Simulated scan of single mutants.
Amino acid sequence: MSRDDAVRASRALAAAGQGDMVWGHVAVRDPGGRGIWIKAPGWGLEEVEPGDVQLVSFDAEVVEGDGTPHKECHIHLEILRARPELNCSVHTHARSAVAFAALDVPLLPVSHEATIFGGADAPRFTTTGGLVCTPALGRDLAACLGDAPAALMPKHGLVAAGETVPEAVMHAVLLDRACEVQLAAMAAGPIRTYSDADEAAAKRAQCWPRSQLEAGWEYLTRK
């Protein structure tokens, strides 16, 4: 896990269409326990180069790199502090996720993508629709995410996490794609067919083992 992982993850998210000018970010745990590798403020996901990445400590101080840390570094610091097994977290303003969260309806397993939740709804972070710019808000978001692969942030975006960089990136991608599919179905009429809990759980195991998440990740990095 390193500066280069943060670069690749940023570019993969951009290739998946999750860029929002200079907003949104991905963090990778430093293998030495010093903090997180995250892009500096002011860069788009598709622009990130190694020199644009900072090492930010768990006290939210820049250890390596230039400039001040991102205002929302607390998203990643608190998620990774709360769950030591995780090594990567993602926050983007993915458009379909933002639009879907505004409807305040359950995310249904209409497609393969939504089965990452095993038939359950996606968690929703409702403490604030503004920036997660304090440790307290970061802790609230980490508690909302719990052990889920991703969560919606109504009026804001999404957050995702994983034990590996490919997992975290793909969890963000799958959540946004699941929202996109359900939005399209709802625009055409009432949703009548989707997986029940048993089928959704089975599909999660079939469709999204680590090998398939890594295959999706490799595709995005090739793009």
Rank of each mutant, 00 (worst) to 15 (best):
M186P: 07
G32H: 13
F58H: 13
S195I: 11
V98N: 11
A114I: 10
A9W: 05
G129N: 09
T127C: 09
L103W: 11
V165H: 05
E61N: 07
K39C: 03
E61L: 14
A150P: 07
D20Q: 11
R124W: 05
P209L: 03
D196V: 09
P41A: 02
R8V: 15
A9Y: 02
D4I: 13
N87P: 04
A205E: 14
T92A: 02
L158A: 00
V98G: 02
T126V: 15
A94T: 07
Q182K: 09
A12N: 05
A102L: 14
E47N: 10
A114S: 11
G33A: 04
H70S: 15
G189C: 07
G162D: 03
A184R: 15
V28P: 02
I36L: 14
E64Q: 13
A16F: 00
L183S: 09
P50F: 01
W208T: 08
D4N: 13
A201H: 12
A14Q: 03
L80T: 06
D59A: 13
H112V: 12
A185E: 14
D140L: 11
R139D: 12
T221N: 00
R11C: 01
G65E: 00
L141M: 13
L145E: 06
A14P: 06
G33T: 10
V173E: 05
A101F: 05
P154W: 07
M1F: 11
G129L: 06
P106G: 01
A187T: 08
E218F: 04
M1E: 13
P149K: 01
A185V: 13
E214K: 14
L13A: 03
Q18A: 01
R124Y: 06
W208L: 01
L220C: 00
E180F: 07
H76Q: 06
A16C: 01
S10M: 05
Q182V: 10
F117R: 12
T92S: 03
C179R: 10
V165W: 08
C88H: 05
L137H: 09
D59P: 07
D20E: 13
E46F: 13
P154R: 07
P166S: 02
P109N: 08
R222W: 12
R83A: 09
C179L: 05
L141F: 08
G138D: 09
I36K: 06
E47I: 10
A15F: 00
G19D: 12
E46M: 11
T164H: 08
D176Q: 06
S211K: 14
A150Y: 08
V169C: 03
A187M: 12
A202K: 13
P50H: 02
R83D: 11
S2T: 15
A161P: 09
D59Y: 03
E113S: 11
